[in-house]
């Protein structure tokens, strides 16, 4: 049977090799860009336009950690992403519970529609949001009640993130509830516990790790949002301070961009090192979160 043995070893080696390739490429994807953080050239300043001559700080990663605007962006991103994840949990956990525990007519269709959002391109999401809020009754409502959704910190940013974060969260929370053995719930109910108490004392604790993982998932997805924010909210960094509401100034979130959008804008401006600095900051945040999800051992359907 040595031929079979050899073939088995070969097969296993192949599987390991493929995994190694994927893991190494993933590492390489990040490591190979470290040199982008180092200024590649000294840029001569031109005197054609005075505003152009403002010196971009040409040093390691553009010195982004010393830029107060970066930290304001960080505040903004973390604050809105957390708010989004909380909102998503508030709506999504009951909805996930309903989808796993109650018979709702047309549940199959609802499942398909909800999960389709996950594979909707961000550009389509942003576009649909703009049309939803700027045409038809919702626009009239904004005009007459004197508020604005697109191009605002709140609720604009949160709305743009919520669509995909909720879709991701829902799938994870559904998986978490589906993983709870229904017998426990039946026992609790038959012992006279109300539905609310059953949920609170049985379903929730047994699904806890899955629910937390889903929350982190929604949070990371919200933080990773780019396209919808770009189309729906644009950038805020150059607006005059007076355009920002008081709470935004109190929380140090004025004149800041959403991190992923800010990264793109800096790269577009040709401020490459700074842009890559932000990109690495984002990678770090995502890495910690993903590790946390694995650590907690959450599961998520992909649908």
């Amino acid at each position: 049977m040595s031929g079979s043995r050899a073939r088995a070893h070969l097969f296993i080696a192949l599987c390991y090799a493929c995994t190694l390739v994927v893991v190494l490429s993933s590492c390489w994807l990040f490591l190979s860009n470290v040199d982008q953080l180092v200024p590649a050239e000294t840029v001569q300043t031109t005197d054609t336009e005075s505003w152009r001559t403002e010196t971009l700080s040409r040093r390691f990663a553009g010195g982004f950690w010393e830029d107060p605007a970066f930290w304001r962006s960080m505040n903004l991103s973390v604050f809105t992403a957390t708010l989004t994840a909380l909102l998503a949990a508030l709506i999504g956990i009951p909805a996930a519970y309903a989808l796993t525990h109650y018979r709702i007519p047309g549940r199959g269709i609802i499942d398909v529609l909800f999960s389709s959002v996950i594979v909707l391109p961000a550009s389509a999401v942003g576009l649909c949001l703009i049309i939803m809020f700027q045409y038809g009754p919702l626009h009239g409502l904004q005009e007459n009640l004197g508020f604005q959704v697109p191009h605002t910190l709140l609720p604009g940013l949160v709305v743009a993130q919520l669509v995909l974060a909720l879709a991701m969260g829902l799938s994870a929370w559904r998986a978490a509830f589906a993983g709870v053995n229904p017998r426990f719930e039946h026992v609790a109910r038959s012992l006279g516990s109300s539905r609310w108490r059953t949920f609170w004392t049985v379903s929730l604790p047994s699904a806890k790790s899955g629910l937390i993982a889903g929350f982190i998932l929604a949070w990371v997805r919200a933080l990773a949002e780019f396209g919808a924010v770009l189309i729906f909210c644009g950038t805020f960094r150059e607006l005059p301070v007076s355009r920002f509401p008081g709470w935004a100034k109190d929380l140090q979130m004025q004149q800041a961009d959403y991190l992923s959008v800010g990264m793109w804008v800096e790269i577009e401006f040709g401020n490459i090192e700074y842009g890559f600095g932000i990109a690495f900051a984002l990678v770090l945040i995502s890495a910690v979160s993903v590790y946390a999800i694995h650590r907690i051992g959450g599961k998520g359907y992909v649908w």
């Binding site: 995994t19 994927v22 893991v23 993933s26 590492c27 994807l29 990040f30 190979s32 860009n33 961000a122 990371v220 997805r221 933080l223 990773a224 949002e225 780019f226 396209g227 992923s260 990264m263 793109w264 790269i267 842009g275 890559f276 990109a279 984002l282 990678v283 995502s286 890495a287 979160s289 993903v290 590790y291 694995h294």
Partner: peptide
Amino acid sequence: TLIDLPVMVPAAAIGAL
């Protein structure tokens, strides 16, 4: 984590990287 990372990092950052 390393395998999952490219899915969870903002796609725009992946493009830059």
